[in-house]
Computed example of a mutant assay.
Amino acid sequence: MSQSIFLTGASGFVGRAVLKRLLADGVPVVAALRGNSELAGVSVPVVRFDNLDAAHDWGDSLAGCDVVIHAAARVHVMNDTEADPMAAFRKVNVDGTLALARQAAAAGVKRFVFISSIKVNGEGTPLGRPYTADDVPAPADPYGISKMEAEQGLQQLARDCAMEVVILRPVLVYGPGVKANFLAMMRWLDKGVPLPFGSIDNRRSLVALDNLVDLIVTCTRHPAAANQTFLVSDGEDLSTTQLLRRMARALGKPARLLPIPAWVLKTGAAMLGKRSLSQRLCGSLQVDIDKTRSLLGWVPPVKVDDALSLVARQYQENK
């Protein structure tokens, strides 16, 4: 008998893909949407909320649901305009998450799958020394801190009640419809813009959207996932240079990459106040998914080049 899933953030980048997969698997889903968000071409029961905070009453919407997948969040943004970003992140990511989880437990939900972030571990790793799921958390910004505090609250709740908690910390997620820096790089490559990233010898873990979705669905039902924390990636780490070359190949375009030394880029970025951008482009952030593989028997089903081809195809169809 299929589990019934309560999915928050169902109109978001990850949430939409999770919803599509669950419906394809024949799993009954209740979708929680913020404000006037819509689900084009999908017919499922919908619960709407204006503010994801401690005061929100989920009422009877959780009744009969076996699993909550909590993908809604106040996400990390560049140049945050909030007067108190930490308070804003805590209101949604900590208070809102824990209020939902407590009400889920009271409603008899069996498992709560929380989509956290690798930012709980930190902002970067020395080359060849990846993060593991059991490392001591070291978040460096309000978003990462709020996700860590939510994790800690959920772990305590799991100790106090019968509801199981599963925590997933994804790295950078890419897939059809991806935005931000990933989309910007694809646009540059598509236009043939020469880029100064031909000599970057870092390593970054990434996760294709379909791989993340597959692990999320696995964690809704796998017995060994109960009360565990997992890191998730494609299982293949790439340098920025390698990623750009493979993105260009997926686009069918040449990669015009200039061999500028990484230290030159970092120095220039620091002078322009773009240190965090240079860290993402030149620094390493690797994760070890051995725990995910061994406990769950999980293998990323989609290869990097196949995932990049999907992104490139969608980009070219919609640009």
Rank of each mutant, 00 (worst) to 15 (best):
R221S: 15
E149L: 15
D237Y: 00
R313M: 00
A104N: 10
E38K: 12
M78H: 13
Q3F: 05
Q3I: 14
R21F: 04
I5K: 03
L285R: 11
K179F: 09
V264A: 15
V44E: 01
L212R: 09
D53Q: 05
L265T: 03
G283H: 07
V287A: 13
A99H: 00
L172R: 12
K20C: 08
Y143S: 02
A88W: 10
V302H: 08
Q152A: 15
G175V: 09
G9I: 05
D50M: 04
R249Y: 01
K253C: 11
L215C: 07
R203M: 11
I216L: 14
Q3H: 13
F13H: 10
A269L: 01
A312R: 07
L168K: 08
S294P: 00
Q286M: 13
I167F: 08
S309D: 12
S309T: 15
N211C: 03
A24I: 10
G96Y: 00
E236Q: 15
A107R: 03
A248K: 06
A162D: 14
R221I: 10
V213G: 04
V173H: 02
I69E: 05
N79P: 00
G96H: 03
D141Y: 05
K303F: 05
Q314C: 03
S11C: 12
P196Q: 02
D57K: 09
A150M: 11
H70C: 10
V304S: 07
D210T: 13
R245V: 06
C219N: 07
A312H: 06
A140I: 13
G252V: 04
R221Y: 06
